[in-house]
Simulated scan of single mutants.
Amino acid sequence: MTGAPQSEPELCSAKGCRAGAAWQLLWNNPRIHTPDRRKVWLACDDHKDSLEAFLGARGFLKDTVPH
């Protein structure tokens, strides 16, 4: 069988979660990142709110967009 290799699905960033990512949580730590830098955590529907809360409580969350 020939063809392009299949890529692995991108998974949620929550510890131990093996679900596919549905969201991108864009964040930065203003103490160590420039204001325009965005790091990305991936989230499934079940962990979106808890990961947003974690980043938001620290003032790191900048945006959440569909993956």
Score class of each variant (00 low, 15 high):
R37A: 15
L61E: 01
N28H: 14
D45A: 11
L51G: 02
R58S: 07
M1N: 13
C44L: 08
N29K: 15
A19Y: 01
Q6N: 13
C44N: 00
G16S: 11
D46F: 06
G16E: 06
A21Q: 08
K15E: 15
G59D: 06
V40Y: 03
L61M: 02
S13C: 08
T2V: 11
A53T: 10
L55S: 04
C17G: 02
D36V: 14
D63V: 01
P9H: 09
G16Q: 06
T64F: 10
G16N: 04
H33N: 14
A53F: 05
H67M: 02
P9C: 04
L55P: 01
V65W: 07
A14S: 15
G56I: 07
P66E: 07
G16T: 06
E8T: 11
G20D: 09
E52P: 00
L55A: 00
D46K: 06
D63Q: 08
P5I: 11
R37M: 12
A22I: 02
K48H: 02
E52T: 12
A4W: 14
D45F: 05
R38W: 11
P35N: 04
A21P: 04
N29M: 13
D45V: 02
G56F: 06
M1V: 11
C12G: 08
A14E: 10
H67G: 08
L51P: 00
D46P: 03
A14V: 08
L26A: 07
Q24H: 10
S13T: 12
D63N: 11
V65A: 08
A53L: 13
H47K: 01
Q6E: 07
D46V: 09
W41N: 03
E52N: 07
P30V: 10
D45R: 02
K15Q: 14
N28T: 07
G20Q: 14
D36M: 03
M1T: 14
A21M: 11
V40S: 04
D63R: 13
T34P: 06
N29H: 12
F54Q: 12
D49W: 00
V40L: 05
D49F: 04
A53I: 09
E10P: 08
S50D: 12
A4F: 13
H33V: 04
W23C: 02
R18F: 14
K39D: 05
A14C: 07
W41E: 05
A22P: 04
D46H: 10
R31M: 09
P5W: 08
S7A: 12
S7V: 15
R31F: 14
R38K: 15
E8K: 14
E8D: 12
W41F: 14
G20Y: 01
T34F: 11
G3F: 13
E10N: 01
D36K: 11
Q24K: 10
E10H: 08
T34H: 12
V40M: 00
S13Y: 00
A19T: 06
H33A: 09
A4Y: 13
P30C: 03
S50L: 10
W23T: 03
G16L: 01
H47E: 07
P5M: 07
K15I: 14
T64L: 04
L11D: 02
R31A: 05
T34E: 06
I32L: 12
L55V: 02
F60H: 13
